[in-house]
Every structure is written in C-alpha cells, then in structure tokens.
C-alpha cells in the first residue's frame, strides 16, 4: 500500500519542484579600462583610442537622448571622427604578449591574435557604420538616433568576442 501511495504521489513531488530555467542576461556596464602607468605604450595607445570613440559617441548619444541640443555640424563632425578613428592603421596596437592572458590592465582577449582578420572586420564594420552616419547626421536628430544602432552593433559585436566580460 505504501509503495503504491508513493508511486501515486511521485507526480505531486515532481510538480512541487518542477521549474523553469531561462536564458540569461549579462550586462556589461563597466567603463573604459583604467590606463595604468606601467602599461606597454601600445596598450595605453589602444585604450586612449577607445576613449576617443567614447568622447565622440557621448556627443552623438547626448543628442539622440535629447540631453544635448541637436547641431548638424557637430553631429556630422563626431560621426566623421569615429569613422576616421576606425580607419587608422592599428597594426602597431597589437604586439604579441599584450593580451589579457599575458598582462594585467587589459581586457583584450587572446582570441584577437588568433582571428586578426575577423577582429579587423569588426573595425571595418564600425568605419562603415560611422561613415554612413557621417553622411546622414546633418539630416536631423532622427538620423542620429538611427545611426547609433549600427555603431552600437559593431562595437558590441566586437566586445562580445574579443573583450574580457565582467
């Protein structure tokens, strides 16, 4: 009898503990890596390069959010700066021995060196997105809003594969 009762009750126990598990989200909200005094010059340079992206993005983003008054020339200039930055020759930025496995103070994953072509393709995508925005940024704040999406996607895509997440 007890045995049968246990069998009949089993689904109840199952029900009591059955659960959903879902996909997860992870938001990276960290700011730019702190430049340290003892970083190799190439690492410091590429981190400052990221700061320059951020400085120009802040202007465009501020306009997109309505925190900064829209200014066609300023928006076009900032988008052009990002495009120009993305087109700089970066071959000096990535010497061997400067990945996150090698030194402190960088979030550059070793995967960069293993997939340099793919890594570069993300930078090219950014140049393309920023160039597109440079052409439309003068049309109004709506164009700035729309253009931020493409830039964000290229930035995020690269960070996803090639930056230490935290």
């Amino acid at each position: 009898m007890t045995h049968r009762a246990a069998r009949l009750c089993a689904p109840l126990f199952a029900a009591a503990v059955t659960a959903a598990v879902t996909t997860s989200a992870l938001i990276g909200t960290a700011g730019p890596a702190m430049a340290q005094d003892d970083l190799p010059p190439a690492v410091a340079a590429r981190q400052h390069h990221m700061d320059l992206y951020g400085f120009n993005l802040a202007l465009l983003g501020g306009m997109a959010k309505g925190e900064i008054d829209y200014d066609a020339d300023a928006a076009t200039g900032a988008a052009g700066n990002i495009a120009a930055l993305a087109m700089l020759d970066q071959s000096g930025y990535w010497p061997e021995g400067t990945s996150s496995d090698d030194i402190e103070g960088t979030r550059a994953l070793p995967a960069i060196w293993e997939n340099m072509d793919d890594f570069q393709s993300h930078i090219d995508a950014l140049a393309e997105a920023a160039t597109a925005l440079e052409e439309t940024a003068g049309d109004g704040v709506e164009a700035v809003r729309a253009g931020m999406g493409g830039i964000g996607k290229s930035c995020g895509g690269c960070h996803e594969d090639y930056r230490v997440s935290r």
Partner: peptide, 16 residues
C-alpha cells in the same frame, strides 16, 4: 536601441 550604456560601453551576453 543601440546597446550603449550611459558610459558608452556596450551590452554584452544575452542582453546584446
């Protein structure tokens, strides 16, 4: 919209 945080870092993981 763009994945940019107020610091202009980007969304990661599943949130992207």
């Amino acid at each position: 919209t763009s994945g940019f945080t107020p610091e202009y870092d980007t969304a990661g993981g599943q949130m992207a």
